[in-house]
C-alpha cells in the first residue's frame, strides 16, 4: 500500500462555463484524517466531486492510491476503494434503511459487518424497515456513513457530516470518526465546524476561492487560532 492515499496537483474544475477550482494541491497520507475547511462557496464540495469523478469537467492530477483518476468515471474511482458521503447525504427515498445500507457493493474485504454497524449506529437498527424518506437528518447522516463502512473502502470522503445536526448527534458522529481512525482508514473531511474538526483531524487544509491557501498541522493549531477564525470568517 502506498504511503500517499490521495495526491491532488494543479486540479482545475468547472461547472459548465464557470471555473470553480483554480489549481488545488493537497495530499493525504495513509491513515490520516485531513480536513478541508473554508468559507461557503470556496469549492470544498466541488473538490470532493472532482476526486470522485462526479465533476467530469476537470484537469490536473488526481492520484488515488497511486493510480491516476483524472479520466476515470465515478464507478471506477469508487472501485479503487473510495467511499463517498455527499453533503446532501443522498439517502434513497424509495429504498428502505436496510436496502440503503446494502446498496453500495463491496469494494474490498475488511468492511464492517451489518452487526458491527448496528452496534455503532443503534438507531438505524430500530429503523431498519423504514423508508429512507422517513429518517431524521441525524439518522440520514448516520446511514450515509454506515453504508460506506460496509463496503471495505479504505479511503473516505466525508462532506460536512455535522452540518445542521444537534450537538448530541455531532458528538455521536465524532465517536464514529474515532472508530474509523481506530481502523486506520484514511479520511478527507470537509468541515465548517472547526471545534469538531480540530478534535478529530491530523491536519487542516484551508481553501479560498478554489485554491488551497494554507496548511495547518495539529501542533500548530493553538497558535494559529486567530488566523483560522479569519479564514473561516467567524
Amino acid at each position: 500500500m502506498p504511503d500517499t492515499v490521495l495526491e491532488i496537483a494543479g486540479l482545475n474544475g468547472w461547472y459548465g462555463e464557470s471555473h470553480v477550482l483554480h489549481g488545488v494541491d493537497l495530499t493525504v497520507g495513509q491513515g490520516e484524517v485531513v480536513t478541508l475547511i473554508g468559507r461557503n462557496g470556496v469549492g470544498k464540495t466541488t473538490t470532493l466531486r472532482a476526486v470522485m469523478g462526479i465533476l467530469s469537467k476537470r484537469s490536473g492530477t488526481v492520484k488515488v492510491m497511486g493510480a491516476e483518476t483524472i479520466r476515470l468515471p465515478p464507478e471506477r474511482v469508487a472501485r479503487l476503494g473510495v467511499g463517498y458521503v455527499p453533503e446532501e447525504r443522498g439517502i434513497f427515498a424509495s429504498l428502505t434503511v436496510t436496502e440503503n445500507l446494502m446498496l453500495p457493493p463491496t469494494l474490498a474485504p475488511g468492511g464492517m459487518s451489518v452487526d458491527e454497524i448496528y452496534r455503532l449506529f443503534p438507531n438505524l437498527k430500530d429503523r431498519a424497515r423504514s423508508q429512507g424518506s422517513k429518517l431524521s437528518g441525524g439518522e440520514q447522516q448516520m446511514l450515509a456513513i454506515a453504508r460506506i463502512l460496509r463496503t471495505g473502502a479504505r479511503f473516505l470522503l466525508l462532506d460536512e457530516p455535522t452540518e445542521g445536526l444537534a450537538p448530541v448527534i455531532v458528538e455521536q458522529i465524532g465517536q464514529v470518526l474515532d472508530t474509523i481512525k481506530g481502523k486506520s482508514l484514511t479520511v478527507l473531511l470537509v468541515e465548517q465546524n472547526f471545534r469538531f474538526a480540530a478534535k478529530v483531524a491530523d491536519r487542516h487544509y484551508v481553501m479560498e476561492s478554489g485554491k488551497i491557501v494554507d496548511m495547518i498541522g495539529k501542533a500548530e493549531i493553538a497558535g494559529k487560532m486567530e488566523r483560522l477564525e479569519e479564514y473561516l470568517g467567524v
Binding site: P74, E75, G90, L103, P104
Partner: peptide, 24 residues
Amino acid sequence: TRLGSYLRAATENPTLVRAFGINV
C-alpha cells in the same frame, strides 16, 4: 431484489449510484 434496488436507486440519483462503484 438487490439488482432491483440498484435500479430504483439509479432512478432516483444515478450519479451517486455510480459513485458507489456501480456501472450505471
